[in-house]
């Protein structure tokens, strides 16, 4: 028996499908929905805890990936808000994985989510609350 906390992102064409039902019925998984949002014409976002036998969880997640659902471990859901960022660069030397980088030409900051390991060092460092951990 294992448990995984995940952030699931549904493309617009999947929003009306009973995917959670399938996970329960076909894959024998416990699905605990921690948070859910559906934005009209955009995407569905679900924070879930999925529990079950290791094999069943793996099969269930494979099913989600096949459908086109984007899976992400919950811990990695760090959000950078460009509109709040002043490009001061104070977060940059603190980031251990260089998820935050500076274009030295115009001194603007950018964030590569794929590099982020959610250590959260930047969250406390940002004076403008431009980095947020979404749960």
């Amino acid at each position: 028996m294992i448990k995984k906390r995940l952030v699931l992102r549904f493309p617009p064409d999947l929003i009306d499908q009973p995917i959670t039902y399938q996970l329960v019925k076909e894959y024998d998984l416990m699905v605990n929905i921690l948070q859910g949002t559906v934005t009209p014409h955009e995407e569905g976002r679900l924070v879930v805890e999925i529990g079950g036998e290791r094999k069943a969880v793996e099969k269930g997640l494979a099913y989600l990936s096949r459908l086109g659902v984007e899976l992400q471990p919950l811990a990695r859901d760090v959000h950078w808000h460009p509109a709040k960022c002043t490009h001061c660069t104070v977060c940059v030397p603190l980031c251990p994985t260089r998820a935050f980088t500076v274009s030295r030409e115009n001194m603007t900051v950018s964030f590569d989510k794929n590099r982020c390991i959610a250590c959260e060092l930047c969250v406390r460092a940002c004076p403008y609350k431009a980095i947020e951990i979404l749960f």
């Binding site: 002043t86 490009h87 660069t89 104070v90 030397p93 603190l94 115009n106 001194m107 603007t108 004076p127």
Partner: peptide, 14 residues
Amino acid sequence: EVPTGGLSSYARAK
């Protein structure tokens, strides 16, 4: 060698 960060924003100053 020490990596640097700013508190003053060069981009916004520009």
